[in-house]
Design a protein around this nucleic acid. Structure first.
Lengths: 257, 257
DNA sequence: CCGGCCGCTTAACCTGTGTTGAAGCAGGGC
DNA sequence: GCCCTGCTTCAACACAGGTTAAGCGGCCGG
């Protein structure tokens, strides 16, 4: 994998804070907590397992920079990437009870990771007890929303894999990436960093590398996308939306007062 | 769809209670709450929408008898069933915040449904406030587990659709059904009621009806399954497990003291 | 500066699965 | 008892996508 300079975008507010505050308004102390959690990112090389298969209690972590994925391997080596994880995404904040046969989580590119154990309480639904009991805190609401987004990505993935052609799958996937990356401010004029190999893409979309390649080329020839180095531009979003029957994830990326 | 007599199994403890108490020990009052919720099931015919696409705040419901599914339709009519829902499964207990582009929930057979708004508080992580704050109640833990199971089913579905052949998919799916139905006491000697048409199966497994039919026949010819009327028997579970590379869902169905 | 590795691309060929269309078959309603 | 409807089954054909194998270019390490 080529260098991918981990562009610490100038304006890169911390992706986690950016994303969560887009889901629900955060109190000052909640924002401070997040900033504290993400203060000391640990660099991790590509192809590193962050959560091992069947691990008893995966440590909560946060992906600050770089791409990762949840994946599952079949006995004969076939790999399916279940979801791609992007900057600002959370890892292992749910399912902390039993060791679940969930597959593993691994980086796809060099990445910046933070331990996020401090978010566990909030993620557990932390609500104000006492007189205001029942009112969810902003952070808890945001984390809930983040969890729900991940379920939406899963559903999208199921529909892509189950009922769409290769061409449609790629279009749909690219639109989803664009929307998710926009929520953390990493899209400019439909152009965003695209640091994964076609092999990874193929494993995410249930295709062979060869066919993945054919399909990307077709999209380029049709003038729908343009790829240069490790960045991609969606040249005709409406066309892509129509091809992919894309309905969005409801994630506008617009912070709500 | 033929009659499917909705076999109110003699020993049929309420499926919901059966399932949830398998996930975590329930206090007496929690069990009572569940019994109360499921006291007056409402019969619903097959092919009824329980949650409409994009519905603002789906009412929490509980499936007592019959099969249902979460599904998504593409513009041109293609349908993908995202998860199949079985007796004891919960509907709409999460994602209550925003209208999410989630697809719809519909019955696949005649079914018995209960409103389950009463479970919302518990599902929200209801923990004992006051001195014992932080300790999750049994019911909350069970509901959390139920939510996590649904995510596992989704992951399984992704792997099936993305990386398995038709033959493997069906084997894997049948094993998952067996495990889930066993958790609500509806499996006897690897035999269980199987009230869905091949068309539904095809939409769940991302196949055409015709190929679904070919594949079922192959499984029968190979002596792996036996179908009679609306019931199916898995004749060689180890073989199926090996074919499907099935690792289980961690749902043992064994109530834990 | 060179060699090797990795990722991308191409080509030829093969096969699993989709499509179309039509024939059996069974149950339920009238 | 008979027809209608919905489900299964079958056959012929079409095609999307998988497989194998080989070449090419850039980057990195020596």
């Amino acid at each position: 994998m080529p260098g991918e300079p981990l562009a610490h975008t100038p304006a890169a507010t911390d992706a986690v804070l950016r994303r969560l505050s887009g889901y629900a308004p955060l109190a000052a102390d909640e924002a401070a907590l997040l900033r504290q959690v993400t203060a000391r990112p640990v660099p991790v090389p590509a192809r590193t397992e962050l959560v091992r298969d069947g691990e008893a209690a995966p440590r909560p972590q946060v992906l600050l920079e770089g791409w990762a994925c949840r994946q599952r391997l079949l006995a004969d080596g076939r790999r399916q990437i279940v979801v791609v994880l992007l900057p600002g995404d959370l890892i292992g904040l749910d399912q902390r009870r039993r060791p679940l046969p969930f597959g593993s989580v691994a980086t796809l590119t060099p990445a910046q990771i933070c331990e996020a154990g401090a978010l566990r309480d909030a993620a557990d639904g932390g609500r104000t007890c006492g007189k205001a009991a029942g009112k969810e805190t902003g952070l808890a609401a945001a984390l809930r929303q983040a969890r729900e987004m991940e379920e939406i990505w899963l559903v999208n993935q199921v529909v892509r894999l189950g009922r769409q052609t290769a061409y449609e799958r790629v279009a749909h996937f690219l639109l989803e990436l664009r929307e998710r990356l926009a929520a953390v401010d990493r899209v400019q004029e439909n152009r965003f960093s695209f640091p994964i190999t076609q092999e990874v893409l193929a494993d995410a979309l249930g295709l062979s590398v060869v066919h993945m390649n054919r399909t990307m080329q077709q999209l380029r020839r049709d003038g729908l996308v343009e790829q240069r180095a490790t960045a991609i531009t969606l040249r005709d979003v409406p066309a892509l939306v129509s091809i992919a029957d894309y309905t969005g994830t409801g994630d506008t990326g617009i912070p709500r007062a």
